[in-house]
């Protein structure tokens, strides 16, 4: 056991080193191409040093795009989380209901199948017409993008329930309602989490698209505005911030999944 633990630890350290090297190589190549070789002018491709400088400035300054970095992050998070949470709250139960109740399935599925292939970005113009360029329109767009994967995965998850498990529950005297809550939903939980993770990713990505088209604050807006000002350093700051926050989301959801999904992903 102890030797095994040591071996595992060694392996983990090794993997961490490899991952760190990967990031180092990326930033190293970037640095050499810009600060050393000056392959492109600064306003097209800034060096990492310039980006870090811009980042530090942006922590306190509102120039040139009207808000500090935190201001933009807060605006984006507000939109993304509002839309995402609504999408999850509506999408997951709907997916479960569609999979469990045949009538709901028959009623909703045709409509859902019609809406599903429409790319989220196609919703943007309509949403702007309906809700203006405030929180509402963007949250509504995010809602659409988050909603779809939540429904699909919850649906697939419930459908994975093995008949034999339902039989066992039935012979134990469980009612259909109890079977949904004690057998089908626990079976579906891993896929429900997959849906939540995928939709968080798409929500966060859609957000930037939405903000680039219609906004006056937020990370996507920051990117768009700084393009017209030829401030590539600030564009990169915003991009890296988006990447970082996305990563934090994923890590957070993974931790949550580990806590809730017991017994492995497969029986």
């Amino acid at each position: 056991m102890n030797e095994y633990a040591i071996q595992k630890r060694k392996e983990r350290i090794k993997f961490t080193i490899v991952s760190v090297i990967s990031l180092c190589v990326f930033f190293g190549v970037w640095y050499v191409c810009t600060a050393v070789l000056h392959l492109k002018p600064d306003y097209v491709l800034p060096s990492p040093v310039q980006v870090v400088e811009a980042f530090i400035q942006k922590l306190t300054q509102t120039n040139p795009d009207g808000a500090t970095l935190f201001g933009h992050i807060a605006a984006s998070l507000q939109v993304a989380l509002t839309g995402y949470l609504l999408g999850a709250i509506v999408g997951v139960p709907l997916g479960i209901a569609m999979a469990w109740f045949r009538r709901i399935d028959l009623f909703v599925t045709p409509l859902f199948d019609l809406i599903r292939p429409v790319p989220t970005i196609a919703w943007i113009p309509l949403m702007i017409l309906w809700f203006g360029i405030g929180l509402g329109a963007k949250a509504a767009i995010i809602f659409v993008s988050a909603f779809v994967p939540c429904v699909i995965n919850a649906y697939a998850g419930i459908k994975q329930t093995k008949p034999v498990h339902l039989w066992v529950a039935q012979t134990f005297g469980a009612s259909r309602r109890e079977m949904l809550f004690t057998v089908a939903i626990p079976t579906a939980l891993p896929l429900i989490f997959t849906g939540l993770r995928i939709s968080l990713g798409t929500a966060w990505m859609t957000l930037c698209a939405a903000e680039m088209l219609a906004s006056n604050k937020g990370l996507g807006y920051m990117i768009q505005l700084n393009r017209s000002l030829a401030r590539a350093d600030l564009i990169v700051v915003a991009m890296l911030t988006i990447g970082l926050i996305g990563t934090i989301f994923t890590v957070g959801l993974n931790a949550l999944e580990k806590k809730f999904v017991k017994g492995g992903r497969r029986g």
Partner: peptide, 21 residues
Amino acid sequence: TAPGPDRGVVYQTTALFPFCT
């Protein structure tokens, strides 16, 4: 006419609930 708790069934291995201890 329906399953009931007076009849317990033991199936092949996969019939355990994987999400329960």
